[in-house]
Write a protein that binds this DNA or RNA. Sequence first.
RNA 1: GCCCUGGUAGUAUAGUCCGGCCUAGUAUAGGCGGCUGUCGCCCGCCCGACCCGGGUUCAAAUCCCGGCCAGGGCGCCA
Length: 439
Amino acid sequence: MKLDDLGDWRRSHYTIEVTPSIDGEEVIVMGWIRDIRDLGGIRFIVLQDKSGKVQITIPESIVDKETLKKSGLLHRQDCIAVKGIVRKMERAPRGVEIIPKEIRILGVAKHPLPIDVTGKTPADIDVRLDARVLDLRTDRSQAIFKIRHTTLEATRHFLLGKGFLEVNTPKIIASATEGGAALFPIVYFEREAFLAQSPQLYKEELTIDFEKVFEIGPAYRAEKSHTRRHITEFTSIDIEEAFATVEDVMKVAEELMYYVCKVVREKCREELRILKHEVDLPSLPMKRLTYDRVIEELHERNVKIEWGKDIPTVAYRILGKIHPYFYFITDWPTKLKPFYIKPRDDDPGISEGFDLMWSWIEIASGGTRIHKRDLLIKRLKEQGLPIESFKYHLQTFDYGMPPHAGWAIGLERLVMMLTGVKNIREVVLFPRDRFRLTP
RNA sequence: GCCCUGGUAGUAUAGUCCGGCCUAGUAUAGGCGGCUGUCGCCCGCCCGACCCGGGUUCAAAUCCCGGCCAGGGCGCCA
């Protein structure tokens, strides 16, 4: 089909701005055809733009022949511009419709489409991700990403209000430093480099310069996990604060969770309705369970975990049934935590690290960091990490490292909680997992 | 790395256990026709599929073996 040019047409109104109060005005709207209902002598076209939808009504007796003919050529998801007169009409959705004078076809869609954008015929997650750009047009996807956007907006607003400075640290790093999660190796000219698994060391170092920093950025994990809560590229919300301890930053975390829930509840009512999901306001302070207490609770339910061992997923699922919303797990055995987490002064076997849980899923982890160089070296050795790889990091401890604490929140897991979505890939535009690298 | 499950039109499903009744049903999308107030419009007609390879059998969508692809779970982790 021959496409029309945009020409000198510019949008005069978003669809949401077409209301009964502008009855009789001429408008130009632009967007995509969501649905067409042809009744013979009258044709209804639902036009969708980023703001919402409006009905274009084409009664054969009113509209001129050429526009009538053109309107008959249209399909779902074609991109069009419509110049027409707004008509107040009680029988139309939102009490208003547009009677077109001229239609310009700007882009066409090839049919049949791989997924139904009206959402009436469901599609599997795999099919949806293969046609992701089309899938993102659905009300469900639009709602999810509006909530994700609002979560980020609220998080920034909250942390900026607390005096944190937003930073960006390198995602290409020289060596596999932190231990733990596997890193992706990359070819960096004639050397090998890695994609960063977290901004951990950089954000700690930056407390010397800016005291309170946060970063919202990508993190990469080469884990072969294949579950609804794992992806290889995710977004980490990180904070680090000088002159603070685990209790101070746990407070920041729970207040942030409260604030984000509050903002999403207020600003995303329609989106939550579409997703048939409710967000409860957590009560503060959130429960603080020690690792010992968690082991006890599990014992009471016949799940035996030896002290010092990690908590397996089955146990977390049980824990999630006992504590269905947010709770902290504190006082972890030092050996279960990364080398930079500070052991307690009065009992070095226990750390000042914590996890923030949402039901059975870990949303965040953090704690007081070690700021004394000698202790850090001792812990590196205990965990069998190569001291020489930490040369630049250890060097910063000669520049007046303040006591500090921080945490990292997995944005996608937070958004899963806020949207009720069961698969993490649904809350990422173009997710990467063990098996998916495209689109 | 280990374990489980599945693969039928563009999409979503029925049929698979217990082989023949399958010329593979249904919905939706798409095409054609009809319909002047739809808003998951309606009505009629049409198009369109058993993942690939091998085996068993008179007969395979259905049973067996291999492959490929996908979903999920464990471990690890956010």
